[in-house]
């Protein structure tokens, strides 16, 4: 690293990148916050008020949306982890055919989320291939209603399908940093498969697990497109409700309150992650 010449020029060079991001993200957050209090309102009068905030907290519909989005975010991220972790472990060591397998797994990473949603809704419809296969195997007697179901299974399946490779890539690289001698040493000391898994792999891969979980949670929590295509009739996800409130009902101030709630949740989760990461890795 060059340590000399720490000058203001360095900060100037940051402007095109960091400055650009700060300008756009910052201004949109700023507008969201001011508008949630009725200031800088685009729909006519501009006046400070906390009425919109009060209204949201008395509104069961918005609360339902928040809880629903939280649930989908949590279940999608945990669900993806459960699938991705064993595969990542398996792929850790090279072997015949594993390269091919790895590129097969990567395909959904390059399939846009909306396309992924469409691919999956084709399969999980009432007489879609999944239901027909389960019927043929005698596992179920009547087709399951998975599309636009009340619980949101359809959305979760799509999130898992789409994001599995993403989580896998991050997990793989954190598993790759675990040295083989650590594991050999543990085995020689008589550690069984389970204790190797839970005492070595999981703790050492924890930073990767946390990052992938956080990114997936944020994606699924703030998701608009997949929820609007495969989500239940009620409740709409919070991002969907926000967009409809703004563009369909033209109540931008109320939408801004929802926007602030989404931002705060996201920030809180990210903060929680950084604390957890510090705790796990034991460093500051």
């Amino acid at each position: 690293m060059e340590r000399k010449n720490v000058s203001s020029i360095d900060y100037l060079l940051l402007i095109p990148g960091v400055g650009f991001i700060l300008l756009f993200i910052g201004s949109s957050i700023f507008i969201t916050i001011t508008q949630s209090f009725g200031v800088l309102s685009v729909t006519g009068k501009s006046q400070f008020t906390i009425e919109n905030w009060k209204a949201i907290f008395h509104d069961k519909e918005s609360l339902d949306s928040i809880l629903f989005s939280l649930k989908i975010g949590l279940l999608s991220s945990v669900g993806t982890l459960l699938f991705a972790f064993p595969i990542a472990l398996f792929l850790r060591k090279g072997g015949a055919g594993k390269r091919f397998l790895a590129s097969l797994i990567k395909i959904p990473l390059f399939i846009p989320a909306l396309v992924a949603a469409f691919l999956i809704i084709n399969l999980i419809s009432y007489h879609g291939i999944v239901n027909e296969a389960l019927l043929a195997l005698g596992i179920i007697k009547k087709p399951l209603r998975m599309l636009n179901d009340k619980f949101g299974w359809g959305v979760i399946v799509i999130q898992v399908w789409k994001n599995l490779p993403f989580v896998l890539l991050i997990l793989s690289s954190s598993l790759a940093s675990i040295r083989d001698d650590t594991i050999d040493a543990a085995r020689n000391l008589g550690a069984g498969t389970f204790s190797v898994l839970f005492r070595i792999y999981v703790p050492l891969a924890m930073p990767g697990i946390l990052v992938s979980m956080i990114l997936m949670f944020i994606k699924a929590f703030g998701d608009f497109a997949i929820m609007s295509v495969a989500g239940p009739t009620y409740p709409p996800s919070i991002a969907l409700r926000m967009r409809n409130t703004a563009t369909l009902f033209q109540e931008w101030d109320k939408a801004a309150v929802l926007g602030v709630i989404i931002i705060l949740t996201t920030l809180f989760i990210t903060w929680l992650y950084s604390r957890l990461a510090e705790f796990v890795t034991g460093r500051k």
Binding site: I25, V42, L215, W252, T266
Partner: peptide, 17 residues
């Protein structure tokens, strides 16, 4: 931030800007 910030919120209110 662009990855972390929820897309719809940024989109909706950036559109005002």
């Amino acid at each position: 931030l662009p990855i972390i910030m929820p897309g719809m919120v940024v989109a909706l209110f950036l559109s005002r800007v």
